[in-house]
């Protein structure tokens, strides 16, 4: 039952985040979605990553959003959609239904319920999986962060650099 409530809560928050016209509030709904997702993850058995999601997804990302919105100004946006809403609806619902129809039959397999019975005695392995088995992924995260930081520096910092240069020249 609690699982159901979490699921419903996640979707409700997500919908509210999308429907909200004030940017800041929308970002906060996103944070709440993220927090609930992290809770769901915990329920599924992924305790470690749930913490990360809570801190990064709900925390850091929200901070970034708030930061960006502060620079931009918390404008409230026109709710009129740039393309016909029914079209978006039909495309999304059709895609979702198709995917569900293709995926769900394979979800009812016996082995999954059996798997769910055994609770997480596997805890503690996460570290070794992350740092040993999938070390390439982890190393690549560094590359990702590096490229991302360079991109942000280039995009945000460049402006100031130019201004300061102009100031120097002026």
């Amino acid at each position: 039952m609690i699982n159901f409530l979490i699921g419903a809560g996640i979707l409700a928050c997500a919908i509210l985040a999308v429907r909200e016209n004030r940017l800041l509030v929308s970002a906060l709904w996103l944070a709440l979605t993220s927090a609930l997702v992290s809770f769901l993850m915990y329920r599924v058995g992924a305790a470690e990553v749930a913490v990360v999601e809570l801190s990064v997804g709900a925390g850091l990302v929200t901070v970034l959003f708030v930061f960006a919105i502060n620079i931009i100004g918390n404008e409230s946006v026109a709710s009129q959609a740039p393309l016909p809403r029914p079209l978006a609806w039909v495309a999304i619902v059709l895609g979702g239904l198709l995917l569900a129809w293709m995926i769900l039959p394979s979800m009812q397999l016996e082995r999954f319920t059996a798997v769910l019975e055994q609770q997480g005695e596997l805890a503690g392995l996460f570290r070794s999986v992350l740092w040993t088995d999938r070390s390439v992924d982890s190393l690549l995260q560094v590359v990702l962060i590096f490229s991302g930081v360079l991109a942000v520096l280039g995009l945000i910092g460049g402006e100031e650099g130019l201004e300061s240069k102009e100031e120097k020249q002026g």
Binding site: A91, G95, L99
Partner: peptide, 17 residues
Amino acid sequence: LLNWNVLAIIIALVLVL
């Protein structure tokens, strides 16, 4: 228009599926 571009991706997904 970005939204139309994204819609094209989703419609393509629907069609491919």
